[in-house]
Simulated assay, not measured.
Amino acid sequence: MLSQQLAWLILAASVIAEALGTAGLKLSSGFTRLIPSILTVVCYMAAVWLMALATKRLEMGTAYAAWAGTSAALTALIGIVCFAETISPLKLIGLGTAVLGIVLLNMSGGTS
């Protein structure tokens, strides 16, 4: 049986896979470049598979909310760092709010 800590680690791996898949999507230029397109598909498949494993132990709503919020924050960070996307105080507040929400969800202790 999966421990709750391991389930959160698997969920974190799913977040990383999703964010890398999204970066690959940008690099794929609308699936016209082979290697980034393959990276995108593999990463998205891994993200869904890892999420399925994590939800064996974590509550689905909590896991999905944490996954979506963390993925969005990480994807925004990748966009800022790797693709020179803009950053503004409002964007930072939004990302901070997402992270705070994830911390609160994690503190709720929800398990299946």
Rank of each mutant, 00 (worst) to 15 (best):
M45N: 13
L2K: 11
I78H: 04
G21I: 01
I102L: 12
L53H: 10
G79V: 00
T40V: 11
L90E: 10
I87M: 11
M60K: 08
N106D: 12
A52H: 10
S88H: 10
C82T: 13
I87Q: 09
G61K: 10
S37Q: 04
S14N: 06
V42N: 05
M107R: 15
W8A: 04
A7M: 09
A13N: 11
G110Q: 12
V81T: 10
S28I: 01
G30D: 09
V42C: 05
A47E: 00
T70K: 07
S29T: 10
G21M: 03
S112L: 14
A54N: 07
L25F: 11
E18G: 01
A66W: 00
V81Q: 08
Q4E: 14
M60Q: 12
A52M: 11
G69N: 02
G30V: 14
C43S: 06
G30M: 09
V42E: 04
M1W: 15
S112I: 10
F31G: 15
L92F: 13
C82I: 11
I35V: 15
T22S: 02
I38C: 05
T75W: 05
L20F: 00
M1V: 05
L11S: 03
G30I: 09
T86M: 11
T70I: 07
I16F: 00
A46Q: 02
S112G: 14
Y44A: 04
G110I: 04
P89E: 13
L100Q: 12
I93D: 05
T111M: 13
L53D: 06
C43I: 03
Y64P: 00
E18H: 03
I10L: 08
A46I: 06
L11N: 03
L50S: 02
Y44T: 00
L74A: 09
A17G: 03
Q5W: 13
A7K: 09
T55S: 08
M1P: 13
P89N: 10
E85I: 04
T97C: 15
V99H: 07
F31V: 12
V48G: 05
S3P: 07
